[in-house]
Amino acid sequence: MNALSGLAVNPALPESLMLRLLRSPVPDDVLPFLVWRSGLPERVAEALIGHPEVRVRECFAVNPHVSAGTRSRLARDPVLRVRWPARFSTVGPGPSRRLARPAPPAPGPAGSADHRGDRRAAEP
């Protein structure tokens, strides 16, 4: 861990220093420590949402601690790599939301076509 990573993990890091780190090129080894914090100040969250680097917004989009409003804004990002995790990441405690395969249609009366288009023989 380098000095910038140490700063990024410091829970007492002031908002002004967080913003300063975001204005400079954020090293890859520092980025997760900075954007995965819980309770980010509103100005820092705004800076992350509007950050010009996609990798910064993408990393922030998978932060499980962001509010629903922030996640909603990230889900409208023009870049798919940011939208996708923002829409389908875990939000709060519990299982993550997953894309589910649609359920097949309910079976009809005997002899009707099933969901594969087959005709089933009527059962006695």
Rank of each mutant, 00 (worst) to 15 (best):
P25Q: 11
E42Y: 11
P41M: 08
T70G: 01
R71A: 15
A8P: 02
A8G: 07
D118N: 15
A3Y: 06
N2E: 11
W84H: 13
A121N: 11
D29R: 10
R120L: 14
L80H: 13
C59Q: 01
E46D: 14
S89N: 07
P104R: 09
A122S: 10
T70W: 13
D29K: 12
I49V: 07
V62R: 07
A12I: 15
E15M: 10
V30S: 09
P78W: 03
V44W: 04
A45D: 02
A103C: 05
N10E: 13
P85R: 00
L21I: 06
V56L: 00
E15C: 09
A75H: 10
V66S: 04
L7I: 07
A100D: 09
S112D: 10
R71E: 12
R81L: 14
V30D: 00
R73E: 02
D28K: 08
R37F: 01
S112Y: 04
R57E: 00
R98S: 05
A47V: 03
R71N: 03
V91L: 13
P107F: 11
L17P: 04
R23F: 02
A8C: 02
P93F: 13
P124Q: 09
A122K: 08
G6I: 06
R73P: 03
A122M: 12
M18H: 00
F88D: 00
L13C: 02
F33Q: 12
A61L: 03
V44M: 07
E15N: 05
S38W: 14
D29F: 12
A47R: 07
R120N: 13
C59E: 11
P109G: 09
P95H: 05
P25H: 04
P52H: 08
L4K: 14
H51R: 11
P52C: 10
S16T: 15
L48H: 08
G92D: 10
R37M: 01
L4M: 10
F88W: 15
V79I: 03
V66E: 07
G92A: 02
A75R: 02
P25N: 06
R20E: 14
R20L: 15
V9I: 12
D28G: 11
L40P: 00
R119L: 12
A61Y: 06
L7W: 03
E15P: 04
L48Q: 12
R97Y: 10
M18I: 01
F60L: 05
G92T: 06
V66T: 09
P64G: 08
E53Q: 09
S24E: 14
S67L: 07
A61C: 09
F33N: 14
D28H: 11
R87Y: 09
E58M: 05
R20G: 05
A103S: 13
V35D: 01
A3N: 13
L21R: 04
F33I: 04
R87L: 13
G111Q: 07
P41A: 07
L22M: 01
S16E: 14
P52D: 08
N10W: 05
R43T: 11
V62S: 13
T70Y: 02
W84N: 12
L4P: 03
R71C: 09
F60Y: 13
V56S: 00
C59T: 10
G94M: 04
F60W: 01
P102E: 04
L17Y: 11
A45C: 07
E15R: 07
D118R: 15
P27L: 12
I49W: 02
P102A: 10
